[in-house]
């Protein structure tokens, strides 16, 4: 069968006449599909949880789920507000995490790793390398709304503050039943989550740029060069941190929900 050359656009010389969308023989669709499923699960789970408005605080171990931290509304359960309650009661349609959730979500959406994951899995632009994408037109991140992807830097600054809050929450989670020092499985989970979140935030490309990537002469800034080298190393695993921290947030929240709702009891290791 001889096919005539396809002309991709008016005025251009013809490319090789190959009609197939792709000639890849491997399972190129598996990875974007898997990521799409994970992202979808997370979106559904977090939406449900955010609007649930309960089971986010375990008084006994001082566990606060990251999805509701910091809780600063008068609607918050007593004890969960580590920073006081400067804000009035929220109506039911404003979730308690409304203050921080946009920051965290914005940080993830504009993240260079999630951009790759999202563009591939959700937007199919392209779904995999050397596979024809279904869109007729493409302008990338040159105009509204995708040009806002460039705001990642500012989300990074804000997300770093959120990370500090998360660390503070984790410190408070070392709370024993007698009010002194204590350690439960929940504490460990929260700490692991915070570690992954820290890894994810620090390994971010914007962070890499800010600590040293913007310099022209490393030799004149040895300290910043060392920071940059360190962040560059972490940056190599940015994708792993991104996915792992996504899962760990879900697991942490699910655990706290389960303990808070008394479906399970928190296993105490010490006090």
């Amino acid at each position: 069968m001889t096919t005539t050359a396809t002309r991709p656009a008016a005025g251009a010389r013809p490319r090789a006449a190959i009609l197939a969308k792709t000639l890849r023989t491997d399972r190129w669709w598996a990875s974007p599909l898997g990521i799409a499923i994970i992202l979808a699960i997370f979106v559904i789970y977090s939406t449900v949880r955010i609007f649930m408005g309960k089971h986010y605080w375990v008084g006994e171990g001082h566990y606060l789920t990251p999805l509701y931290s910091p809780c600063v509304s008068k609607s918050c359960v007593p004890g969960s507000s580590h920073f006081g309650t400067p804000l009035p009661k929220f109506p039911f349609f404003i979730p308690l995490g409304a203050l921080v959730f946009p920051i965290v979500a914005g940080f993830r959406v504009t993240c260079y790793y999630y951009r790759k994951a999202g563009y591939r899995s959700l937007w199919l632009s392209p779904q995999a390398c050397a596979v024809r994408e279904p869109h007729a037109k493409y302008t990338g991140e040159t105009r509204f709304p995708l040009i806002f992807m460039n705001s990642h830097r500012y989300f990074f600054y804000l997300a770093s503050l959120v990370l500090l809050i998360n660390i503070y929450d984790a410190v408070l989670a070392f709370h024993g039943r007698d009010g002194g020092f204590g350690l439960g499985v929940g504490t460990l989970i929260i700490c692991a989550n915070v570690a992954l979140l820290a890894g994810y935030t620090l390994s971010c490309h914007a962070c890499r740029h800010v600590v040293g990537g913007r310099l022209k002469h490393f030799s004149k800034h040895p300290l910043r060069y060392r920071f940059w080298t360190f962040v560059s190393k972490l940056n190599g695993r940015h994708g792993t941190f991104a996915m792992a921290s996504l899962l760990s947030v879900m697991i942490t929240d699910a655990y706290i929900m389960a303990v808070s709702a008394q479906w399970i009891t928190d296993l105490r290791i010490f006090n």
């Binding site: 260079y112 392209p126 990338g140 460039n150 740029h209 913007r214």
Partner: peptide, 30 residues
């Protein structure tokens, strides 16, 4: 700005140059 960092360039590079992480993203940040 057209680049949406889907990293296929890095995937196919026979010299294993980290095109996206080391060049495109730093340029975008700059």
């Amino acid at each position: 700005g057209y680049c949406n960092i889907t990293k296929c360039c890095t995937e196919v590079c026979p010299e294993h140059i980290k095109i996206t992480d080391n060049a495109i993203i730093p340029m975008k940040e700059r």
